[in-house]
Amino acid sequence: MENLKSISIKYGFIIVMIASFVGFGLAEPAFWGWHNLFSILLGVTIYGILALGVTFTLVTDGLDLSVGSTAAMSVMMASYFMVVMEMSGMAALVTCLVIGALIGLMNGLLIVKVKIPDLLATLGTMFLIQGLQLIPSGGRSIGTGMMLPNGDEAMGEFTEGFLYLGQGRVFDLIPTPVLFMLALGLIVYVVLEHTRWGRVFYAIGGNAEAARLVGANVDRYRIMAYVLSGLIASFGGVLLAARVGRGDVSSGSGLLLDAVGAALIGFAVLGARKPNAFGTIVGAIFVGMLLNGLTMLNLPYFWQDFIKGSVLVAALAFTFSLAKQR
């Protein structure tokens, strides 16, 4: 009995995941096709990457609500830099990452120095950035040939190299964004689980005062968590811009909830009960797989948010009830 419980805590989520994988495939063999499997992964990459940033802030007992709009900002800025300012793809990429890191720095400073509670501070920046990103383009989507305020046409375009970031396929099969997500997931995993910094991040999340009294620079680590979150979110935005090939004003919507959801679902994976990189990626993939499978079985699209919410609530209930009693 005790054994059964500890097994279900540890592997329950994975078992459910494998079962649905098998179930969907039996019901609809096309589900198992390579092409479909990679399209599932491709579908989760953007918010999966954002969720990795959210994981950093969750580990330090905070939460970054501005990741969605930071990513959207990145989409608009990347487009603006290339289409209007005719910058190179590399320059656009680097500038976007810098902007993302700066947004994170602002979040970190507001939380650590001004001492605004994390949710409120990042909610504030979320609004701020959502508004800010509309200003350069006058509230319109950005694409080659768009009319500029002075009457000229924007002549720049997305460079081929930049587009490859979002649209390329390695071996004509694996989408490049998927590789980026997996690589980033691996890096975040190693940093959090196997480096000194990761240990300090977790210590701060567990008891910040104890961490401070063993000499950790708690403020600096906290700020760093938000900088990493902003940096990763802006990278997610860059990939999104590269995939779509234009600066769509509505591209950021929904990203925040999906990202936070994936990171929270990650608590349930392997009975971790804490934010962790592996769980975050698995959580993101699980949600994507579920939506893909259900859509194949003709679930109407408007059910999707309901399904995501149900998975999140179920995963959290599982984490905090069953796993707590061990």
Partner: peptide, 20 residues
């Protein structure tokens, strides 16, 4: 309040100050 990180194991709590 000041010393124990409740989520950590005994090992992780012991090695906190001299992680390097």
């Amino acid at each position: 309040n000041n010393a124990v990180v409740p989520e950590f194991s005994i090992r992780q709590n012991i090695t906190m100050p001299f992680l390097k």
